[in-house]
Nucleic acid binder design. Sequence first.
RNA 1: GGCCCUAUCGUCUAACGGUUAGGACAUCGGCUUUUCAAGCCGGUAAUCCGGGUUCGAUUCCCGGUAGGGUCACCA
Length: 472
Amino acid sequence: MDNKKVVTRFAPSPTGFIHVGNLRTALYAYLWAKRNNGTFILRIEDTDKAREVEGSIEHIMKALKWMGLDWDEGPDIGGPNAPYKQSERLESYKKYAQILIDKGLAYPDPYTQDELDGFREKAELEKRAFLYREYRPETFDVWDGTKALRFKVPEIKSYHWDDLVYGDLSAGPEALDDFILIKTDGYPTYNFAHVIDDLEMKVTHVMRGQEFISSVPKYLSLYDGLGIERPLFATLPPIMGKDGNKKLGKRDGAKDVLDYGKEGYLPEAMMNFLAFLGWNPGGEKEIYSKEELINIFDISRIGHSGAQWNDDKLDWFNKEYIKKLPQDELKNKIFEYLPEELKIEKLIPTIVDRISKFGDIKEMLERGELDFFFKSPDYTKEKLIYKNTSPDKISSNLKEAIISLQKLDEKEFSLENIKVTLMQIADKLENRGELLHPVRFALSGLDKSPDPFTIAEILGKNETILRLQKAI
RNA sequence: GGCCCUAUCGUCUAACGGUUAGGACAUCGGCUUUUCAAGCCGGUAAUCCGGGUUCGAUUCCCGGUAGGGUCACCA
């Protein structure tokens, strides 16, 4: 096993978008493959034709690409073990099904759906798990494809196995049953298909969520029945919803991965955040680039307990990554969310300080926080007054400010110079607010706004002077 | 109900028998040029409970409790 090239796979079913829980599974599989210079496979598990949603394969691929999880083999690019869609691998499943039939380990299910429902209902009434194998027929018909093909569990026993994350895992014989290999529609079940595919695609590490633990004995009995070597298992702890009481799932509002992109989250931030949801390299560093994650990711440090989804922490990660963005990239990103008249470079620092994701810009605009730039402020005289200062005093302060600012020429009208100029006046006052507040208000007309120096710099000399004169 | 998994601040986690139980997010307080934001500094806050094992348990074992998962011709 040690010398084998590491092969991992992400195997979604095309039933819609993938959410962040799915994405973390993909991320871990990706990181582990890359860490070991191995292969990361994308395989589409489209065996449930009823639930299939059109366009989801493209959607899923788009989501993986968004976060930079490129696959080495997949339905679009092919690979040595193509095809990578289960619906195109029916011959393989048939072949292995025949092997099982020949071994006497597979048989057609003689019961109707109603009969099965009856058995299940009975078990439920008796408050015990339903086990099909208790109804296994004595003699098997020849399978002609019109009935579902079931696996005959070779040996009913407790299974113990080793998991790379959880260590020793076990399940009682109740977990073992004659599950369906091939459905009446001719497609295999996940239980059967994934085992065959993993074998043929030489997958070495199967990484999947905790919800599969109780199914593992079924797979183990199938590996045994087939007489094939099984891969290594790495079980991932669940991601819980915001309330922390349920596994994250679509029906509880788990969002489409691509929606995070639309809201202005950076893929690097999402990757970093997701990597840390259930895994931690130890130590106190938290910001890790993709390359760093690849170098340090270790299956054995994946946690065992469910982690609650936390938007605040994601926002924090995102802000950290926004701050690290190169100027031109930052500018492009921000301008994407800005109307034409506000695509002003001077505005960028003011915006960056006030957002954690680019989508927040939309809300800033809605709240009118940037109105000062293109609208001449509209306010009542009283708003200019600072505490108990008299209107006359305010006026004379503003006049002094204008005179001083006039001395700066256009070129000198920088944040630093404006600040020095205004502070010189303000410091002579009993209260700095007697100047700073009216100036800020005259320029912005807003109760909450950036500081007066910043606004003045953004507006430029002419507009600043104009608004101050108007205020007087 | 059977089977299985889990349990450290509100949240994500570190500490793989000996620490004043560490960090981050959130929260609270302070500072910085009035407001807002950002930034900086600081505070509050945790080993689920009960038994063992041990000189010593967050750490190992058992039992409870709580939470989660699973028992499909879904994956």
